[in-house]
Amino acid sequence: MIPLQRGPLPEELIARMAARSERIGDHRGGARESWRDARTIRRDLTVHLVAMAAGLSRCMYCGDSEGTSIDHFQPIAMAPQRAFDWFNHLWACAFCNSNQKRDLYPTDRHGEPLLIDPTSDEPADHLDLVLVTGAYRARTAKGRETIRIFGLDRPVLERGRAHAYVRCRSMLRDLARLAEHQEHAEALAVGHALAVQPFADVLYEMLRLRTAPRAALVFGAETVAGLNMLTGPHFAKWGPVGR
């Protein structure tokens, strides 16, 4: 998981959602059916969620698969009045949404959610990513429940992150060499490819650790040089690079 920035919605879309929320109690099928009937609202929300998502419309939970549907972070069954709440909508793949999370929403004894919301939480406060193995390790109860509910410890995800780490290191070395030889167009292409690949959490973690005392020893000097380039103005508009 990486932190994501939730942007504002157009006023007319906010108004349509508010009108739907007001009529939930009058809808024959309740909040869930009202949500299913709101096809144009779902279509318009999808545009904004895809724009928020990492890479090429990646799932905001696993970061691997393409997102396919709007997930209600706090499920409709638990909070029907939040069915049309923009701050309750995230973009998810079918597996994370339908197979893993479903209507699960664990809370602590104070009623606070024990799932990471990447639009309001910093995932790194709750999760450690072991880059070499691709495994997540929980730092908090919220991190532990997030791993469990979304299945972030699935072997296929751990293998994917481990391979992404190898791929990132190689591409970052290429980026540093291309920049050194002033091959700027190809360097920009490599930077863009890095920013839109699946498992943005791997690149995000590398960027986060690039200033650590042993970063050059762990990643290699060229890799760190590539990471530092990605924080510059030419790359700031792409995915986790600009975060």
Results as ranks from 00 to 15, higher is better:
Ser57Glu: 09
Ile70Pro: 09
Val47His: 12
Phe73Gly: 04
Cys62Ala: 05
Ala53Cys: 04
Tyr61Arg: 13
Leu49Gln: 11
Asp44Ser: 07
Gly55Thr: 00
Arg82Ser: 13
Ser65Asp: 10
Asp44Lys: 09
Asp85Trp: 07
Asp85Ile: 04
His48Lys: 08
Met78Glu: 15
Val50Leu: 01
Pro80Lys: 06
Gly63Thr: 02
Phe73Ala: 00
Ser69Gln: 14
Gly63Phe: 05
Met78Asp: 13
Thr46Val: 05
Asp64Trp: 11
Pro75Leu: 00
Glu66Leu: 09
Asp64Met: 11
Ala54Ser: 07
Gly55Pro: 01
Glu66Ile: 06
His72Cys: 01
Ile70Thr: 12
Trp86Lys: 10
Ile76Tyr: 01
Ala79Asn: 11
Glu66Arg: 06
Ile70Lys: 11
Leu45Ile: 02
Pro75Arg: 05
Val50Gln: 09
Gln81Val: 11
Glu66Lys: 06
Tyr61Gly: 11
Ile76Arg: 04
Ser69Glu: 15
Ile70Met: 07
Val47Ala: 11
Leu56Tyr: 08
Thr46Gly: 14
Asn88Glu: 14
His48Gly: 03
Met78Cys: 07
Leu49Cys: 08
Val47Arg: 13
Val50Asn: 04
Thr46Ile: 02
Ser65Arg: 06
Arg82Thr: 11
Thr46Asn: 10
Ser65Phe: 08
Phe87Ser: 15
Gln74Cys: 12
Ala77Glu: 15
Met78Lys: 15
His72Arg: 02
Asn88Met: 07
Gln74Tyr: 08
Cys59Asp: 03
His48Tyr: 14
Met60His: 03
Gln81Lys: 12
Ala54Tyr: 03
Pro75Ile: 00
Phe84Pro: 13
Asn88Trp: 07
Asp44Ala: 04
Ala79Phe: 04
Tyr61Trp: 12
Gly55Trp: 00
Asp64Ser: 12
Trp86Cys: 09
Cys59Gln: 03
Ile76Thr: 04
Asn88Lys: 14
Gly63Tyr: 08
Trp86His: 14
Arg58Ala: 13
Ser57Cys: 07
Trp86Arg: 12
Gly55Leu: 00
Pro80Cys: 08
Met60Asp: 06
Ser69Cys: 09
Arg82Gly: 10
His72Tyr: 00
His48Ala: 01
